[in-house]
Nucleic acid binder design. Structure first.
Length: 384
DNA sequence: AGCTCATAGGCGGTTACTTCA
DNA sequence: CATGAAGTAACCGCCTATGAG
């Protein structure tokens, strides 16, 4: 790993996370840019050496079917490496610019305590009910049936039961303390009960052959809860995954997939932002290039019209290895001053075309040279 | 210490399903 | 009602890290 304090591109999700504390994504993305293979980097905030909040998760005693019981501590490190190898991350010096913030959250998260009760009756006369959000269109958590199955399985393993969730927890409204499977009970063609019924059927199909592909929409409450969790940490330890799954009555695999997809969406969004910024940079540089060409033509024209005007000595550009400043050094022995500009654009924030309001700054692999702007003695200039 | 193997988890890409205009 | 676009849950294949033998 390279320098741990590295500029990075951070994406904030939601106001709270954006303003109060950096969450895992921003910190971990620090390592996103570590590999050289990507070649070009852009940064928005300063990342610090990240250590997991839960540094040493207990070896998970929850044994899933695929043995999720280890690999907890170094998840982020590994992730970072993988991302660095594959990612299209961008890296650029950013000085002190604040992180750009993107709000990817729903506009108004549904209060978790606003629930209605959907009461259904199965064909065997068993009444059951499920909590659903008051403004939910779909209303019924189609994952409940499978979730119940999972819980029943897990209950054998870790003693968890459906009623194990805190009664006042934020998601207790999705707790489903019944288990039904009705095949032809409802009469409506596309009612919530029907949808739930179909979902249950599909879920049971999976239980039967395990190969059927299903697409079960998460409820708004579940999505909101997952979103909140994602704001805290965008990757999950096995323990966190199990806890979330239990809390939301989802399968751990569903939680895992949701986080994967969520990370992918975040990255996609970030890529769009990056592209937009690079596009602006390109336009700005093109404009600057055009302007410099024009200026060069004017100077040449001036020189041809008046050959005695501005007979300056030849100038060379040198870069100081210690401070990376570019200095123009006149080869003339009469030259006693050097014109310097810093490699960063921090001194030119007001006029630098690569600066913008988002706080992004383009790296200065391209030394800025303003020979007529100001003069200053280079501190590292070797004494003549 | 170095190697091999099994395993877990992440990511990119894709598919399949749902919803909505 | 049909349809296409958008969103997203789920899957697949690959890669990397890790721990055990």
């Amino acid at each position: 790993m390279q320098n741990k304090r590295e500029m990075e591109l951070g994406l904030s999700l939601g106001d709270a996370a954006a303003t109060s504390k950096p969450f895992g994504f921003m910190e971990k993305s620090t390592q996103l840019t570590n590999k050289v293979t990507s070649g070009f980097c852009m940064g928005l905030s300063i990342g610090t050496d990240h250590t997991l909040q839960e540094e040493d998760e207990d070896k998970d005693d929850h044994k899933l079917s695929n043995n999720i019981d280890h690999n907890t501590d170094n998840t982020n490190t590994r992730t970072a490496t993988v991302q660095a190898n594959k990612g299209t991350s961008l890296t650029v010096d950013t000085s002190t610019d604040p992180p750009i913030q993107l709000d990817l959250l729903p506009n108004t998260p549904v209060p978790r305590n606003q629930n209605s009760i959907l009461t259904l009756a199965s064909d065997n006369g068993t009444n059951f009910e499920a909590g659903s959000s008051g403004n939910m269109s779909r209303g019924f958590d189609v994952n409940r049936f499978s979730a119940v199955m999972v819980h029943e399985d897990q209950a054998d393993q870790d003693g968890a039961t459906l009623s194990s969730s805190p009664p006042n927890s934020a998601t207790s409204s999705f707790q489903m303390d019944f288990c039904i499977y009705s095949s032809k009970g409802g009469s409506g063609s596309n009612t919530e009960a029907d949808q739930a019924e179909r979902a249950s059927s599909r879920a049971s199909d999976e239980d039967e052959n395990g190969s059927a592909r299903k697409k079960l929409r998460l409820s708004k409450e579940q999505s909101s809860f997952l979103e909140e969790s994602f704001k805290e940490h965008n990757t999950l330890t096995p323990k966190q995954k199990l806890a979330l799954a239990k809390e939301l009555n989802l399968r751990p695999r569903q939680v895992e997939v949701w986080f994967q997809n969520r990370r992918a969406r975040t990255k996609l969004k970030q890529t769009e932002v990056d592209c937009e910024y690079l596009k602006r940079c390109c336009e700005t540089l093109t404009e600057e290039n055009r302007r410099l060409h024009k200026e060069l033509q004017e100077l040449r024209a001036l020189k041809t019209s008046n050959p005695y005007y501005m007979q300056l000595p030849a100038t060379t550009l040198t870069m100081c290895p210690s401070c990376e400043r570019v200095a123009t050094t006149s080869t003339s022995t009469a030259a006693t001053t050097t014109t310097t500009t810093t490699a960063t654009n921090s001194q030119n924030n007001t006029t630098d075309p690569t600066s913008n309001t988002t706080g992004l700054s383009l790296s200065s692999s391209r030394p800025r040279f303003y020979p007529f702007s100001h003069t200053q003695t280079h501190p590292h200039q070797p004494k003549a």
